[in-house]
Write a protein that binds this DNA or RNA. Structure first.
Lengths: 150, 150
DNA sequence: TATTGTTATACTCTATAACTATA
DNA sequence: TATAGTTATAGAGTATAACAATA
């Protein structure tokens, strides 16, 4: 690119995918928190609850693996969900080391309410993107996620 | 959408922009760290150094505002850059409260080397995306960033 | 009174290492 | 020996509140 192609505005950072990913994520995260309210589930607690619905009787080790965090970090998350009464640690016949994570009735209701809130927050936040653009964005982000370790 | 449109695979989470943003950011961040090495600048230190080049004689308050963090959080970042010898806090004539952040010669060289490394890491990581897709991704992320507070 | 830079402090998220009970 | 869950601990990254110097 020659010096004649002057930039309208923007710094080196504004051309970096990593920087824009981080800043865009902060915008979405802040709006998520606003939408969920002061007593709402944190993103990681919501994620864990979602995966216990997607994968019934998932174990903690498997859930940690799918979330991309360590087993040790999952303990507090599961504790939080158990305290809210949204799931329970259930013994698994045949292997007493393992505990299956089972959503309660309250957990299923809370999850449905939460996923509706999250979808509404994203729909409202992303109104400046057309449906096609939103689909394109998801597609591109998933391509980057192909490089996920684990 | 009717129930006939069965999902090939994926959970509720995989359709959320926020979740995919976070996971994609982690992929890029991990590769950034690998590329910069164990003694490399953290992303926020690199960001701060970049902005002292983009905005010569920027003050700490202004830099914090542009980074979207609090002034208090910037102190350690500027300390780190000063310790590396990449910039200095320079007095500003006319207002003794303010200190301009001025890159040193070593800072300019280190920044050029770092931005080259970062660009190479992104180019290599994003080879599965065409040039057009990379441009589209940046465009979409910038649209989301329009909602940045501050 | 208001602002800049700073310190003290705390909270969230995450990782590593070591423990226990099981296998 | 190896694995599942747990605890203890530490390190980033961030925020709030209060302070001294200066405006």
């Amino acid at each position: 690119m020659s010096n004649l192609d002057a930039k309208i505005e923007g710094t080196d950072l504004d051309d970096l995918v990593g920087y824009n990913l981080k800043r865009a994520y902060i915008v979405v995260q802040d709006d998520y928190k606003r939408a969920m309210g002061p007593d709402g589930m944190s993103a990681r607690v919501f994620t864990a609850l979602s995966l216990t619905h997607a994968y019934p009787n998932i174990t903690q080790s498997e859930l940690a693996r799918r979330m991309g965090i360590e087993r040790s970090g999952l303990v507090a998350i599961v504790d939080a969900l158990e305290t809210r009464g949204y799931l329970r640690r259930a013994p698994v016949p045949g292997d007493r080391r393992v505990q299956a994570l089972v959503p309660t009735e309250a957990g299923r209701h809370a999850y449905q309410a939460a996923i509706n809130t999250v979808r509404a927050h994203e729909a409202q936040l992303l109104t400046t993107l057309s449906r096609a653009e939103q689909a394109q964005l998801l597609s591109l982000l998933r391509k980057i996620r192909k490089g996920e370790t684990g």
